[in-house]
């Protein structure tokens, strides 16, 4: 069963991305693309003549995709949460390295910004894992899914996760790493055709990754998981449609400032059993 889910993960992510493009268009008063648009894009990219910049660049891009898929797979199989977060970190590092492997200035700036955003969100992810550990005494995702919903006691950590989501999904106000109007997509600027495909699908996997993290807070309650995912989805899109992009220094200050405060308060609270 898990294998099926792991194989389906990118496809579900693609669907989610398709839904999101429609939701965003409707919020802007437009009709928007068809639901299956991301898949049309995918098939079209497969059909393009490949342009290779250098082998390392392409290889690192593919590694990013595969590592990310492994991270998603590990969540689905229910292993150690901390381990998942470090695998995900590794995936991000591949992306940064691919950005630095070409000569494009935009790619370098993008990779640099990607690194800086990692500074902002990785501590929060680790603290979230720590929160689960303090509460339950284990990192195992499988056990978390079997336990009671933890949103009640870890709601501040959930707030910190909400700050991470726009960064990972490249949404306003925290989309500086991609910043289409400034650096034309950052690290992805030199990818084309079938190689860009991997980065494009990696984006879908990021959707799955963050929403699987959201589901963790719902524990064994399926109802609550659905409610959480759909409300977070709407919230992220609403915020995306109501804000401008903030600069990297602001991004770091805001996420670390608010996120660290929330998570540490929560950890202290859990630690002392408040």
């Amino acid at each position: 069963m898990n294998t099926v889910w792991i194989i389906l993960a990118p496809l579900i992510g693609g669907l989610l991305y398709g839904v999101e493009r429609i939701v965003r268009a409707r919020m802007q008063g437009r009709k928007g693309p068809p639901l299956l648009q991301p898949f049309y894009d995918m098939f079209k990219l497969l059909d393009k003549r490949p342009l290779l910049v250098n082998p390392a660049h392409v290889l690192l891009g593919i590694m990013h995709f595969i590592t990310l898929w492994i991270a998603v797979g590990l969540i689905i199989t229910g292993t150690n949460l901390l381990f998942v977060i470090f695998v995900h970190l590794l995936a991000s590092i591949f992306l940064v390295a691919s950005g630095f492997s070409v000569r494009s200035v935009y790619s370098h700036i993008g990779a640099n910004r990607e690194l800086l955003t990692m500074v902002a969100y990785e501590p929060l992810l680790i603290l979230i894992a720590a929160g689960f550990y303090l509460k339950n005494g284990y990192f195992s995702i499988e056990l978390i899914h079997e336990g009671e919903p933890l949103l009640g006691s870890l709601w501040m950590l959930f707030g910190a996760l909400l700050l991470v989501i726009p960064i990972k999904l490249k949404k306003s106000p925290f989309d500086a790493a991609e910043a289409h109007q400034e650096i034309v997509g950052g690290v992805e600027v030199e990818y084309s055709g079938v190689y860009f495909e991997f980065l494009y699908m990696a984006k879908w996997l990021e959707y799955i990754f963050v929403y699987l993290l959201v589901i963790l807070f719902a524990g064994n309650s399926v109802m609550m998981a659905i409610v959480l995912v759909s409300s977070v989805f709407l919230l992220v899109n609403l915020v995306d449609n109501a804000t401008a992009r903030v600069r990297i220094p602001h991004l770091i200050a805001i996420t670390l400032g608010i996120g660290l405060t929330l998570s540490i308060l929560n950890l202290i609270g859990v630690g002392y059993g408040l």
């Binding site: 802007q28 008063g29 306003s172 109007q181 449609n241 401008a244 992009r245």
Partner: peptide, 9 residues
């Protein structure tokens, strides 16, 4: 400035 919704509006 990265505010696409305002542009559309």
């Amino acid at each position: 400035a990265g505010f696409e919704a305002m542009f559309m509006r």
